[in-house]
Design a protein around this nucleic acid. Structure first.
Lengths: 237, 237
DNA sequence: CCGAAATGGTGTACGGCGTACACCTTGGCC
DNA sequence: GGCCAAGGTGTACGCCGTACACCATTTCGG
């Protein structure tokens, strides 16, 4: 009742939430249980609060995940200054990839996102700046950025299947004979895919594709191709 | 009552549905109203049937959209045989792009998909075959396919914003003065993006990016880079 | 110091979603 | 004629996002 000091009314049992805490909790929840688990109800429970309380801090669900994306993208590591431009761009992209590997939900979230948020724009600007530091024309920077595409965010657009994804296909493992029969059938119908699989198996006996290698392979392919255009004075018109 | 001929009982007022009809109706609905409008309830209503009836033809929602994807991908145009390999791959990818432009929902659907279905595998096999027709090693074919990534399906991974998307931002258009102020602020914070925008504006006075040009630019960049690796005998090990 | 406003958490309710489950009708076949 | 599978129905459940009215606490200008 009396104003200050202490010992009076319960004041406020817990300090009020704020947007940053909500977003951080969202990121933590997505890291732990996946993007699908980030519902307003689930997240609010996590914060010991009723679902509608979140709407005091985020406009709606889209704003929530946009904020989560922003939070992670703002944390992308920044390479040291003064690098040769190709190395600079390369480091930026690989730094983004590092963050992305820590937050597997980020990729689908970015793909589904419809708006560009501040940190996201800032990252794009930074990468464009890394190109421009090499003296490339903004025309070439522009097209080079398009060529990198989502690689700017740290992931490739994979046409080949992702790993089965946790929670999918709890089928009993097929027997060895069944596996053999299936592979034979696949080889019949998809001979080139089979040939690739065989080639890969002989080259890397233990596992499937090396994602990191594929990523850097294409990244360097693109950077080299852009560099070649640069030295030959390419222009889009 | 009596068996055959005609004129007896109403028989069946409508012939029974089948999977193909359900998938086709799903594609048509997605074309018309977008992927979000394809719910079991909505689609079933479209077919004059109760929601649960669809489950007699489709295992679940995922199976439905997988089937829809399969249906469209199976319809990708096939270039004439006998082309030089780069041109063959190029045509396959551009044919995929054509189909994709007719079905804007396909891109998010593919991105969200978790399983590879038969037509999808067949398309991958076909493209791999187009590479292999040029005598490229399967090692290089493999990495070339990874480099193409989702371009195989006809779309690039665009880091730059998609068009605002129908049904978004019904804000009143900002006044000219407001627009000017906003652009100035953006130019302050994102100087390189601003520089790109200015360069593009001077180069193509009328519109934003030419998506088709960007797509083919990167496609050709990659094909040329792969071709260069091919002639120099590249290998991943 | 008081009262008003702003801030932030609550409770209820609605319409939509995917789908499990039990049921019923119809058609074809022995 | 009787059976069975195929295909359509009806009901119900538990999720989802969020509109809206309400209440508690803090903050702040007069």
């Amino acid at each position: 009742m009396t104003p200050a000091v202490a010992g009076g009314a319960p004041a406020r049992t817990t300090p009020p939430l704020n947007r940053a805490q909500v977003l951080a909790a969202g990121v933590a929840l997505a890291d732990r249980e996946g993007l699908a688990a980030v519902s307003m109800r689930h997240l609010s429970a996590e914060l010991g609060v009723v679902p509608m309380a979140l709407y005091k801090h985020v406009a709606d669900k889209h704003d929530l995940v946009a904020g989560m994306i922003d939070l992670v993208v703002a944390g992308y590591a920044v390479p040291p200054p003064g690098l040769e431009w190709r190395e600079g761009v390369r480091r930026h992209v690989l730094a983004a990839r590092d963050a992305l590997l820590e937050h597997p939900w980020l990729r689908p979230a970015i793909e589904a996102a419809t708006q560009r948020t501040p940190a996201v724009l800032a990252h794009m600007d930074t990468v464009a700046g890394a190109f421009a530091a090499g003296g490339l024309s903004y025309d070439l920077v522009h097209h080079g950025m398009h060529a990198l595409g989502h690689r700017i965010w740290g992931f490739s657009p994979e046409a080949f299947s992702n790993p089965p994804a946790p929670g999918t296909l709890p089928l009993p493992a097929p027997s060895a004979a069944e596996q053999h029969a299936m592979m034979a059938a696949v080889a019949q119908q998809y001979p080139h895919i089979a040939a690739i699989a065989i080639d890969t198996a002989t080259r890397h006996p233990l596992g499937a594709c090396d994602d990191q290698f594929e990523f850097e392979f294409t990244l360097d392919l693109l950077l080299e191709a852009v560099a070649r255009l640069h030295v030959t004075g390419w222009s889009s018109r």
